[in-house]
């Protein structure tokens, strides 16, 4: 079962998001029922461009992220939604190298991001001064457990070695492809995040010894929007 889920995810990952279904043209010659263009707001120039009907399940972006307690590198896809696309949900597969240990690991991440503003810096560039969110990360290995194995007395350790909750805040800059050009890529966003994982939060909360960089880690990524 686990193998099946893993392989399914891998297959989905390898399919470039947006490969299936009809890609809509935005701005010029937009089909009537596919898009809502909102009036430009001072802090937000984003337009809501969506796939039609059932095609809404097609991911709207691909994402590549480095570090962030989800692996050295993670690759995934996601969906943006909300009237200005402020909300994003993404799934990622990550890779933890062997480093000084005996094994390398794969991880799975479910990530939710809120990006309230996108400030226009000209026709092709926008700045997102804040992104914030959380993600659940699961290390895909039998050495880790969600619930304590039965051999332990009930509540012996009282936490899961497998599932980590991470919180983050960050910023990004988005480069749009010119609107008059036919392009498979609508925009490219470069972002960074400061993230903390639950185990470090618990540790730092009760110890003066732990400093900022013990609690937080810096992570970088690139997001490629397809609609």
């Amino acid at each position: 079962m686990r193998l099946w889920i893993s392989s399914l995810l891998l297959c989905l990952m390898l399919l470039p998001a947006g490969a299936r279904g009809q890609r809509i043209n935005y701005i010029k010659g937009l089909p009537k029922d596919t898009v809502t263009v909102w009036k430009t707001r001072r802090l937000d120039k984003r337009q809501d461009v969506r796939y039609r009907g059932l095609n809404r399940i097609i991911p709207t972006h691909n994402v590549l992220q480095f570090a962030g307690n989800m692996g050295l590198v993670s690759l995934g896809f996601g969906w943006d939604y909300g009237c200005r696309g402020q909300w994003e949900t993404a799934v990622l597969l990550g890779y933890i190298p062997r480093n000084d240990g005996e094994k390398s690991y794969a991880t799975f991440t479910l990530k939710e991001t809120f990006i309230p503003w996108s400030i226009s810096l000209g026709e092709k560039v926008a700045f997102e001064p804040l992104s914030a969110g959380l993600y659940l990360n699961s290390i895909l290995s039998r050495d880790f457990w969600v619930r304590e194995p039965d051999k332990y007395p009930y509540g012996y350790y009282g936490f899961s070695t497998k599932i980590r909750l991470n919180l983050f805040v960050g910023e990004g800059i988005t480069l749009y492809t010119p609107s008059h050009k036919e392009s498979a890529i609508r925009s490219v966003t470069l972002f960074y995040e400061f993230g903390a994982t639950d185990l470090y939060v618990i540790s730092a909360a009760t110890n003066k010894y732990l400093g900022f960089w013990d609690l937080f880690g810096l992570s970088f990524g690139i997001k490629i929007k397809l609609v």
Binding site: L72, G195, G217
Partner: peptide, 21 residues
């Protein structure tokens, strides 16, 4: 202040900086 490392790969990454053995 502990060991200063700005990049967190994963809490269980076995990425050992500094003294070993």
């Amino acid at each position: 202040m502990g060991s200063c490392n700005a990049i967190d790969i994963h809490p269980y990454d076995c990425n050992i900086s500094g003294e070993q053995d």
